[in-house]
Nucleic acid binder design. Structure first.
Lengths: 245, 245
DNA sequence: CAACTAGACTTGTATATACAAGAATGTACA
DNA sequence: TGTACATTCTTGTATATACAAGTCTAGTTG
């Protein structure tokens, strides 16, 4: 019943031997044969079944553990892990939609809309050379007339050439960008900061008061589209996410 | 010329030998000594420097590669990867693991561990009657001795009766809870606040300075297990997430 | 019966060794 | 000059071995 691997030589050709063991285990789990908490064969057992050394069998189990597929416990054994949530919550949502969903009126103030040269930080984030031309916009979003988000955005002009000509009082940058350059990926970082002078004035809050700052790099197939810094007054905004296991 | 291993016994005591190598490499990178794209010593070089076998040095490099800290290329060498954002937003992760993953030492201070009665807010969150008995704990988590998280937690005693008897210096509440009551779902809310007196003192920061506050309700099959408020100093913590579309 | 102990598992760490395979640098030869 | 080859780095795969350490079971002992 056990599959016998014939070739003695190590660096066979196509794929390493531990990959075959990983594939086998994955197949059992995906077929439902091995449910969550099922105890998978031990290292020694797998080594025997697949005719490899224990260290090779171990590698298969270790990698699957790192990948969240299995769980191991010294002395007990190796078990199939709970299925992962995988679902990406915390969608990249349009602030205007969010305000509308609350039944409030949306508005904005465009503080800046210009072409400038990329600083080192911006260049790295957008994958451009330092000093390259980039579009730069600063917009304050209003919820029932009250500032709710300070948006500073750097956009890649090679991917979105008509950015500066847009009417952002009609459609937000986010809305426009997702239409012209469908997103494939986004890096998001959340941190707490004290508002500096510029932000405080724009959001009509005291300088130094706690704000939620979100950095977001959005990428489409062609490259990094845009790099935005979104600042919310701490007491007027919350980020929510629901995770499932 | 071959490395002479003095101590014959393998499992020394505190931490494995490859961990020391990982920590060393991390330190060089974090100090700026080794910038992005810097070529790190080869497996053989590290093996010699740290007086371990090549396979042990290799393990350190491999794990750091899996963690996104390094990049390897057969025939060329091992290089420092582009810096990536910290913390992971989506997964409900153990703060102790997160600290350990950074190669830092974890510690905590238990400020409170008691049984009390549920306020209205707590009762609603846990699905209990107002005034019902709940467990209440306050713990400060340390990263290299520096406070990095203030954790205030209310736990449902009907689901986790032995909560108060746990030794939280050994396993964090998160760790313990996920063991005894496997999670099925979690609500997470992130906001920015100014630190109040209690939090400021516990985190050793100035009162009023910006903090990331995370509310998290964790549910298992049997009901709502726990309701936690996690406060991070804004300048010592970031939440990151990578979303795919 | 309870408590301890010894063994038989398990995973975890560490080493020494071998060969495969990618990449760079030199050197010899046409 | 330039191509081909050998050398020497590097990382990647695989094995055999040893001991450490966690967990359970069965047997022994008080």
């Amino acid at each position: 019943m056990s599959s016998q691997i014939s070739s003695t030589t190590t660096g066979a050709s196509s794929q390493p031997r531990y990959a075959a063991i990983k594939a086998h285990i994955r197949a059992q789990i995906e077929s439902g044969e091995w449910p969550a908490h099922f105890r998978v064969p031990s290292e020694n057992q797998l080594a025997q079944d697949f005719n490899v050394s224990r260290m090779t069998a171990r590698r298969a189990l270790s990698e699957l553990t790192d990948e969240g597929v299995l769980m191991r416990s010294q002395g007990l054994g190796t078990f199939v892990a709970e299925p992962v949530p995988a679902g990406s919550l915390l969608e990249v949502r349009n602030i205007a939609d969010e305000v509308a969903a609350r039944g409030h009126s949306y508005g904005n103030r465009i503080l800046k809309l210009e072409q400038t040269t990329a600083s080192n930080e911006v260049a790295v984030a957008l994958g451009l050379a330092e000093g390259a031309a980039v579009y730069h916009s600063i917009i304050v979003h209003l919820d029932n007339g009250l500032p709710i988000q300070f948006e500073e955005r750097y956009t890649n002009p090679t991917l979105v050439p008509e950015y500066l000509q847009q009417d952002f009082s009609a459609a937000t940058p986010n809305e426009y960008l997702t239409r012209v350059a469908p997103l494939t990926e986004a890096d998001t970082t959340v941190e707490a900061i004290g508002a500096d002078g510029t932000v405080a004035e724009a959001l009509e809050i005291d300088s130094g008061s706690a704000c939620l700052q979100i950095w977001r790099r959005t990428m489409s197939r062609a490259g990094t589209v845009s790099f935005a810094r979104l600042v919310h007054p701490g007491n007027r905004y919350r980020l929510g996410a629901q995770l499932r296991f």
